[in-house]
Simulated scan of single mutants.
Amino acid sequence: METLNARKGRPGGAGRELETALDELYTTPPSDFVARREMLAAAAKTAGRVDDARRIHAARRPTLAAWAANLLLRSQPEESQQFLELGRALRAAYHARDADGLKDLSAQRRRVVTALSRQAAQLAREAGHRLSESVQQDLEATLRAVLADPDAADQWAGGRLINALTPPSDFRPGTAPAAERPGTRGRLTPPPGARAAKDELAERRRARQEQLAQAQEAAEAAEERLREERARRADVDAELQRAREHTEQARRRMSAAEEQMQQAREEYRQAENEQQEAEEHSRSAADALAQAEREARERAQHVRRMTAGTT
């Protein structure tokens, strides 16, 4: 008999850290699953729990429908336990061929599945993921499978679904008995050969569901890569913009420096011209000074001669 959050051989002590990490991981939104998984695995490895790190790293990312079902289980434990009990009652009524009881329980089943699927969708929106119509259908199919199939109930009660579940074809709690004959009212009587055909149909549905789950997982992985590439492209574009701005600033400084250099060249040429003119003036002044000194000496000598002649 399934119980909420049931675990076969669930360990205690140190193993509980692994269970807690996995429980957290499977309620992490699929878009953040890989990053959170690597973070938890790295933390376990750093703590010396190598085996735990390996198990965490091997965890597969759930589809959106499976994640929403896990989130519902963790967030609404009381309602989830009542849902599991409803499933046990439905299966007991089916196996007892209690058509009247099954009819009453089926009406309750429809209301509960609708209500829980809406709660799960609301929880997903609050976590940042709006469920599409197809994902919502997968979620409702999972809840119907939990009611109809004890194995599915055990899987959901574990809280670590990876893919959406498919209801078995030979138990449809929303339908009335296939045929009623006098004296058999209240007993379910499947037509001859129906079980084999239903089993084959169920197998095909399970195969299609598995293919769909794989395709969804691949699509989600591609979307995650696309988000990563877009973020990387945004970083590169920002870096390019910064480089362009830096180049423009350098160009402006270079242009200003070139203008200053041109102005300095003009000032240098002007200074050279002024220096040449000053040097010419200096030479002229030196020549004039030398001439004046010669004339002064000659005049002085002449004066001395004249003075000597009169004595």
Rank of each mutant, 00 (worst) to 15 (best):
L86Q: 06
E272Q: 14
R269N: 09
G174V: 00
A194T: 06
R49I: 01
E38W: 06
G101N: 05
T310K: 12
N70V: 03
E217A: 11
K8S: 03
L143S: 04
R187Q: 07
A68P: 02
R130T: 06
A65Y: 08
S117H: 04
L4V: 04
A93Q: 05
A66P: 01
R232D: 10
L25R: 11
R10N: 02
D149I: 00
A243S: 09
R111G: 12
Y94F: 15
A202S: 12
E293H: 11
R118Y: 05
G48I: 06
Q82F: 07
V34A: 13
G128A: 05
G48N: 09
R144P: 00
Q214V: 06
G183A: 02
P30F: 11
H302S: 15
R251F: 05
D287H: 14
A115Q: 13
E19W: 07
H302G: 13
E298M: 12
V135H: 06
R305Q: 15
L139M: 02
H246Y: 02
A6P: 00
G158N: 05
T114Q: 13
D154P: 01
E293M: 12
D237G: 01
Q76I: 00
R206L: 10
A107H: 11
P182E: 08
R205F: 00
E78W: 04
L71Y: 04
R181E: 08
A215I: 04
W156D: 02
G183D: 02
A148V: 00
E298N: 13
R110A: 13
R55L: 10
Y26K: 07
I162S: 02
P30G: 04
A69Y: 01
D98K: 04
K8N: 04
A176T: 03
E279K: 15
P62F: 05
R242E: 15
R208Q: 11
A152H: 09
R305S: 14
M1L: 03
H57L: 10
E210P: 01
L131M: 06
G101V: 03
A271H: 11
R55F: 00
L131E: 05
Q82L: 09
R233D: 10
E295Q: 15
A66F: 03
R233K: 11
P177Y: 09
P182A: 06
T114K: 14
R111M: 10
R111Q: 13
E223R: 12
S75R: 14
L139Q: 02
A278R: 15
S132K: 07
E220I: 01
E220C: 00
A21P: 07
P177V: 00
A221F: 06
T175L: 13
R297M: 10
G158L: 03
A179I: 07
L18T: 02
R269V: 01
R181V: 07
L123W: 08
R36V: 10
Q155S: 09
G13T: 07
T46Q: 15
S132N: 03
P77R: 08
I56N: 09
G193Y: 10
A219W: 03
G193T: 00
A59D: 07
P192M: 01
L123Y: 09
E245C: 01
L84N: 06
R195H: 08
E274G: 02
A218R: 15
R61Y: 04
R125K: 12
M39H: 13
L25V: 05
Q241M: 07
A157N: 04
Q275K: 14
E133W: 09
D138E: 11
R283A: 11
R304M: 14
D52P: 05
